[in-house]
């Protein structure tokens, strides 16, 4: 199937081709092609063509797909340390976040996936998530009371919304647009590019930038493929990944700016709340998390001190 001397690695992810992270992945493909003189090629399957995040992770473990990009939240099913990255208001700001991720803490978390055949290569910026609502504006945490907010089906997201006073409603992402439109839920939470690309801004009047969590994306390679690479190839892959991560941060910022513009022009009211009120309310999430995962407290302390 392959020309002699070239290897093709299949990379699958679930994002549309207009997404900034996809652009980052294109950069990864390009850098790797250049570094390896065309001997290491990446074939990209975007748009969830090969399955959902969790399904493709399994395909990496099975060994039929080589590389994927998932949310760190999805990875926490394997490596509990990834859970920590989703704790609300853990990072002071983006700079703090990427200092941690690109430093020894972040790297050690990437390594930990190897035990599950999922070796982390780099992080991608996925911004921070905020609430959007169809009819009731959220200006303080009190406004969340009684609102049904769609969350991803994971415990931390559910706990967080409930702790802030809302009523967390896990629901498939694909059903969400109609659910908001028809009032099955009162709102949801996501980062600006997803808010716009999902068209949810069409059915939402308010976007409250409380920025409660900043879960990054992770680029992963199946160790079944990683171990087949030569030492030189491994270096190329790692370097290309890191370069793409740098480039992606810029793509992300551009996309946030553009998304906010689209949402504003569509008449969505952007609310900039007092973040500390939300942070205060969500403290119990951290406390509960530490109670359930005492072995991760030291990691949390390290991150806070970083």
């Amino acid at each position: 199937k392959e020309e002699s001397g070239t290897k093709t690695l299949y990379l699958a992810h679930t994002l549309p081709q207009t997404h900034p992270v996809h652009k980052g992945i294109l950069k990864f493909q390009e850098s790797l092609d250049k570094k390896s003189n065309g001997t290491l090629k990446i074939k990209i399957f975007p748009d969830g063509q090969l399955g959902s995040e969790r399904e493709v992770l399994e395909l990496l473990q099975i060994g039929s797909v080589a590389i994927t990009k998932v949310s760190a939240a999805t990875m926490s099913n394997f490596v509990p340390e990834y859970h920590v990255l989703g704790i609300p208001y853990l990072f002071r700001d983006k700079e703090h976040q990427f200092d941690v991720l690109e430093g020894p803490i972040g790297k050690s978390i990437l390594e930990k996936g190897s035990k599950f055949y999922l070796r982390g290569l780099c992080y991608y910026d996925a911004g921070s998530r905020s609430f959007y609502t169809s009819n009731k504006a959220i200006r303080t945490p009190d406004d969340l009371k009684g609102l049904k907010i769609r969350v991803m089906n994971n415990q931390m997201a559910i706990n967080m919304v409930n702790a802030m006073g809302g009523s967390a409603t896990p629901m498939a992402y694909g059903e969400l647009y109609t659910a908001i439109q028809q009032g099955v839920v009162d709102g949801a939470e996501n980062n600006p590019p997803s808010f716009v690309s999902s068209n949810h801004f069409e059915v939402s009047k308010y976007y409250t930038l409380d920025q409660h969590s900043a879960v990054p994306d992770v680029l992963l390679i199946s160790t079944k493929y990683w171990e087949k690479l030569t030492d030189q190839e491994k270096i190329w892959v790692q370097e290309a990944a890191e370069e793409s991560s740098e480039a992606e941060k810029k793509y992300w910022n551009d996309s946030v700016e553009e998304s906010m513009k689209i949402a504003t022009e569509a008449g969505v009211e952007i609310i900039i709340p007092e973040k500390s009120l939300f942070a205060e309310k969500s403290k119990s999430v951290l406390e509960e998390f530490e109670k359930e995962n005492p072995d991760l407290s030291s990691l949390i302390e390290q991150i806070k001190k970083n």
Partner: peptide, 16 residues
């Protein structure tokens, strides 16, 4: 069986 073995070996738990 390989799928079951892999998911058990990797201690994959369902979401909720």
């Amino acid at each position: 069986f390989n799928l079951v073995y892999t998911t058990l070996d990797l201690e994959q738990l369902s979401g909720t």
